[in-house]
């Protein structure tokens, strides 16, 4: 595979400060009351949006390699873990600042409000993926089992986009675009690889996974 060095010039660790900078900014601005009239909603919503953006970026890695020959596999773990950090912060803000640890209200939300039920389900699906995003887990689960487990991200991403669509009034453009992008990136996986079926096993999109170097 030939590709520009540019795509992989950055070490993996360098992506964490890059991806987490928006979170640092959002929390700092929220604490300093600089996020407008309703800092809680601004913080909560924007953390959720960043989670979706990173999930979309993570889902784009495989199609980019297969269809555009851009290999970002090296960064997939950093993308995925950063997405999970945003999902967790989003949930933390909901529990701690939005519902103010009113556990009965939170429970009512989970059982009665589909958008919360769906959001919580997505979080519970992403948690095992974050926990197993390391080389030891790949070894323990085996490449096949690990890969199967991590396909949960497809479902979680769809649920995340539906969660957003269910909280807005009317049909504003942004959540529709997120949903459309996720569906598009998943659909690209149905496009057969540009090579003979016999070489599938050596397809780096499948073989290298998110946690490999």
């Amino acid at each position: 595979m030939t590709q520009s060095r540019l795509w992989t010039a950055l070490p993996e660790w360098a992506l964490y400060p890059l991806f987490l900078a928006p979170a640092v900014y959002l929390f700092a601005a929220a604490f300093m009351n600089a996020l407008g009239a309703d800092p809680l909603k601004a913080l909560e919503n924007q953390l959720g949006e960043w989670a979706l953006r990173l999930l979309i970026l993570g889902l784009a890695v495989t199609p980019l390699m297969r269809l555009a020959r851009i290999n970002l596999v090296k960064y997939r773990r950093a993308i995925g873990l950063s997405a999970f950090i945003y999902v967790s912060l989003h949930l933390l803000v909901y529990v701690w600042l939005d519902q103010q640890q009113n556990w009965s209200a939170i429970w009512q939300d989970i059982v009665k409000r589909p958008y919360i039920t769906i959001g919580m389900t997505a979080f519970l699906m992403l948690a095992p993926l974050a926990i197993t995003s390391n080389r030891l887990s790949i070894r323990k689960l085996g490449a096949q089992g690990w890969r199967r487990l991590h396909r949960l991200v497809y479902v979680a991403a769809i649920l995340g986009a539906v969660h957003y669509l269910l909280i807005v009034k009317a049909w504003p453009l942004e959540p529709i675009v997120y949903f459309g992008l996720i569906v598009f990136l998943l659909a690209l996986r149905l496009v057969p690889a540009r090579r003979s079926p016999g070489s599938r096993k050596r397809d780096p999109a499948n073989a290298s996974l998110g946690a490999s170097r």
């Binding site: 103010q100 009512q108 009665k112 958008y115």
Partner: peptide, 19 residues
């Protein structure tokens, strides 16, 4: 149908405003 109307957040109280 999609969310509760039991409580509200009064704008202007900042990040730690109580419902």
């Amino acid at each position: 149908p999609r969310w509760s109307q039991k409580t509200e957040r009064r704008i202007g109280g900042g990040l730690f405003n109580q419902r």
